[in-house]
Design a protein around this nucleic acid. Sequence first.
DNA 1: CTCTCTTGTACGTTATAACGCACAAACTAT
DNA 2: ATAGTTTGTGCGTTATAACGTACAAGAGAG
Lengths: 186, 186
Amino acid sequence: MFNTVIANNLKQFRKSRGWSLSRAALETHVSKAMLGQIEREESSPTMATLWKIAQGFHLPMSVLLEPHSVNPQTLAKHSKTQLCFDDNLQFRVLFPFDPLLCCEMFAHQIAPGKVHLSNPHEIGVIEDIIVITGELQIKLTEHWQSLQAGDTLRFKADQPHGYRNCSSELAVFHNVIHYPKTISDH
Amino acid sequence: MFNTVIANNLKQFRKSRGWSLSRAALETHVSKAMLGQIEREESSPTMATLWKIAQGFHLPMSVLLEPHSVNPQTLAKHSKTQLCFDDNLQFRVLFPFDPLLCCEMFAHQIAPGKVHLSNPHEIGVIEDIIVITGELQIKLTEHWQSLQAGDTLRFKADQPHGYRNCSSELAVFHNVIHYPKTISDH
DNA sequence: CTCTCTTGTACGTTATAACGCACAAACTAT
DNA sequence: ATAGTTTGTGCGTTATAACGTACAAGAGAG
């Protein structure tokens, strides 16, 4: 269940920071005993507690809630991966989320005539678009704008946005998602 | 705080479904009284409870957790820029250095038979390579390795490294340079 | 109109999250 | 080697989540 994801993520981030339970308790204002319980999946934390933990680690909530494989601090290499199909937008992971860099990267393809509308990310998330081939239209604040191959666009992704391809050729673009490094900016 | 986000989202989705608290309780196996408490922000739900709610509404957790506020604005947009020439490596800026994100991004081209050796960056700098077209060889720790189009590589750039193109076609790759957060003056 | 059903809230009870503290084991310094 | 400090776990206590139930108000049916 979901408590496993949180337990693994909390353990991973605490270890990568080199924090003891006591240090983490000081930083998060959640008791050492409770942090231990969460890591051992002996308790399901409330949202308020999870929020304190995320604040203390200066991480967005989503990072605590998403399943992660362990990302080593050493070199990472990825060969061209299989396309995944998600509605009208095909994608593959170029770099999975890295808690140190607070970003992840995808390569997307959108076929002629297809539209994809994205749900907003949490506050503070910024996205980069780099058009590789074709022509991509992107919708921001209810307004569609056109990007050519070689164009780039950076926008706040904590708002609804969308992609579509009105041309007659496949559009390929890369998407870097930057997560906020601190939550205290809210 | 975060309970407000959840309260608003729960209310919104329940209303849009036309579900009463009783119906939602049946679907989610969370008591009517608790759902009401959550919506009125009188209680901070545990992750286990939230999971049941998401399941009952057939929604991913993230939809319950993300604020749906509108914060529209394009941060940066760049059309295809002019190539610069730097020894054997041609480049153009995709995104200039951003002190908030602590990264910058370039598109590079290296012609057949050319080699480029880079001096080490300061300690902590990490580089991403995304090969767009052609075949690129990259030298790390005195060892050349080959990357194909679609491959990615992340490495520590605070050590000597190099690029070369041994093929008969132009190689194009993108390069994201992540600077450590503590050295945001670039 | 009256009667029945539905709805959301309040309240007391039960279950469990979250806490402070003690302590054994491990680690560090002399 | 010993002494002191740190670490993570277990336990009992406190706080609160989650529950079932009662009920006033609202909605719908006849």
